[in-house]
Design a protein around this nucleic acid. Structure first.
Lengths: 139, 139
DNA sequence: TTCCTTGCAAAACTTTTGCATTAAA
DNA sequence: TTTAATGCAAAAGTTTTGCAAGGAA
């Protein structure tokens, strides 16, 4: 789904398609998010964006990340309590979490299959499933 | 497993069994955690403990929660980015997360069955599985 | 005494917000 | 000119830490 299009124009189109006004800062943040297939924190984004081009403020990074997440362009992960991670892959998938390194690794949907899931409480329905498989070093 | 023993003596025994010196504050925090079957935040614990008995400081609440978690007496949950939740149920189980109310509801193990799980990366093994089923209001 | 625990305040860290400035249409 | 976006600094919220004081053995 529109992988590999990381030019400014393509990214601007992608933002517009979500109803987001494509500004310079937003395009740069989007580039950092989508050109790397990684999970990034707000701090990392700030460092990446300000390393490559001109100045972007911390507030703008946070505002932009929330904006992107609100429009379904990225997903915010709560994997450890220390900080938020932002995932440029909004398609259904799961995660390995390496407890020794802190690394997050994607787990594609076909690698997981549920034979049984609980029935949601009355009046509610499932909005999404977050699965995190914690990993430790094998001895 | 040792449910329903919430007297000071029983709680003290339970702490000692984990290698934790049972002080007054620790016993009160343990009582708040175990006598209710709920998921509690540090702030809620602080309020509960200081409502019933004498003063316990915020730092002691945090230190105690970390101590309990380090000794496997409770589990810290990362379910939303806003704050940590502490679960007095350390046995294997999963969670519903009601997005509209913020409520956390236990899902017992038998309600979930995995037909397939991914193979951990080389040199690692599975330390635990966190499953959070997000719920929204059904229309 | 000696060791452990607690409390307080301050610090650290992440995230949000208020507001003046800037950029854009 | 009018609106939207940005940057800065301050504020807010959660959690950790340093250190002096307190309590138990």
């Amino acid at each position: 789904m529109s992988q590999g299009h990381y030019s400014k124009d393509d990214l601007a189109d992608r933002l517009r398609a979500c109803g987001i006004n494509p500004t310079r800062q937003r395009i740069e943040i989007a580039h950092a998010l989508f050109s790397r297939g990684e999970h990034l924190s707000a701090d990392q984004l700030l460092a990446i964006v300000n390393d490559r081009h001109s100045e972007t403020s911390k507030a703008t990074v946070y505002n932009t990340l929330n904006l992107f997440a609100d429009h379904g362009l990225i997903r915010q992960l709560s994997v450890d309590g220390s900080r938020a991670w932002f995932d440029s892959n909004v398609g259904p998938h799961f995660h390995f979490h390496d407890l020794s390194s802190g690394a997050l690794i994607d787990v594609p949907v076909p690698d997981v299959e549920f034979a049984r899931l609980p029935v949601p409480p009355p009046g509610t329905e499932v909005a999404g499933i977050d699965l995190v498989i914690r990993l430790r070093k094998k001895l």
